[in-house]
């Protein structure tokens, strides 16, 4: 409150002084040069490594060759984008990205909610702590580590196939052998990695619910199930909506790390996503086409993130958005 009031006052004086405004900034810069110097290393790194590549994006509109460099290569307008959309390949890659993302979202969104609700019902605190510790662990390993583990656990002679044979499925399943199975594996392994971790947010929200609500419900004769339906779930709906919308904003990130480390040639057809496509263009040194694809993705992602943030803000009175 105070802060915003101060801000308004500052603006008022700034407009009053009008033309001197610029001078004021310069004077303040000279006075607080030490603060500016402290910001400098970080700012430079940011400009070089985050904004430098934005200059490099110009090669999406150029016929880039290594010998001519970014500056020296000739402009060719939208030629690269025409090439990108001409064949079937990018269309397929785009579709794969969206399909994988949405299927993953469909399952990975509810899983941590269910886990948090069940954990909330657990009375034994020691057990709760152990369950939490165990379910968080996979989140701390890279997809390289996880893919090594997954490959051996799900191999044809691995423990999962052994279990399946014990319950009567004799023919071993090749879990990475066909497209449908592969996408199922993406969902399962994603849940394994991040379900526990993602439940933290919901657990925190649930623990913040006013205890008196439950007390009142008990007096009205509501049992635990009724309390969950009428108090707990409505209380976490804002969090659910936020997570959902922010995930939609990242729909073009189908999970490069996961897919790159798990896929193999037999499933390229369904598992080739924008990021793997860009990497492959890079490997064959078709930099302009790869950059065009990357730019296409970055721009759509930016729009989606801004839109989803705007939407979350507008339904939550500016409370839940990222900024």
């Amino acid at each position: 409150m105070n802060y915003s009031g101060m801000k308004r006052k500052e603006q008022n004086t700034a407009t009053k002084k009008g033309l001197f405004c610029k001078n004021e900034t310069i004077r303040s810069c000279i006075k607080h040069y030490d603060l500016l110097l402290m910001v400098l290393p970080g700012l430079l790194l940011l400009l070089v490594f985050r904004y430098g590549p934005i200059y490099g994006l110009t090669i999406a509109f150029k016929d880039f060759t290594m010998s001519n460099g970014i500056w020296g290569s000739a402009w060719n307008g939208l030629e690269n984008f025409k090439r990108l959309f001409a064949g079937n390949e990018f269309g397929k890659v785009f579709k794969n990205t969206v399909v994988i993302s949405l299927i993953k979202l469909l399952f990975t969104l509810p899983a941590p909610i269910v886990l948090a609700l069940l954990l909330n019902e657990l009375k034994a605190l020691k057990v709760k702590k152990v369950v939490q510790t165990c379910t968080y662990i996979p989140y701390f390993f890279s997809w390289i580590v996880l893919s090594g583990i997954i490959t051996s656990v799900f191999s044809v002679r691995g423990p999962i196939n052994l279990l399946l044979s014990l319950i009567g499925i004799e023919k071993p399943i090749e879990f990475f052998g066909n497209g449908t199975m592969f996408i199922l594996m993406l969902v399962i392994t994603e849940i394994w990695k991040s379900c526990g971790w993602n439940s933290i947010l919901y657990i925190a929200t649930i623990s913040g619910i006013d205890e008196s609500l439950y007390e009142a419900a008990k007096i009205d004769g509501a049992n635990r199930w009724r309390q969950t339906l009428s108090i707990t779930i409505p209380s976490i709906i804002p969090t659910i909506v936020t997570v959902f919308i922010l995930n939609l904003g990242g729909v073009l990130n189908a999970g490069f790390d996961q897919i790159y480390n798990l896929y193999n040639p037999t499933v390229y057809d369904v598992s080739d996503i924008i990021d793997t496509y860009v990497l492959r263009r890079m490997e064959v040194m078709d930099y302009s086409l790869g950059t065009a694809a990357g730019l296409f993705k970055s721009v759509i992602s930016l729009v989606l993130v801004v839109l989803s943030n705007w939407f979350v803000n507008s339904i939550s009175n500016n409370e839940l958005g990222l900024w």
Binding site: L46, F49, G52, I54, G294, S298
Partner: peptide, 24 residues
């Protein structure tokens, strides 16, 4: 400076431009 920071968080130049930058 804050705007520079936030835009850096939202927009990704992509791996090929970063690769070329690092190469340069």
């Amino acid at each position: 400076i804050m705007l520079i920071l936030i835009f850096a968080m939202l927009f990704d130049g992509g791996i090929i431009p970063l690769y070329l930058l690092i190469k340069n």
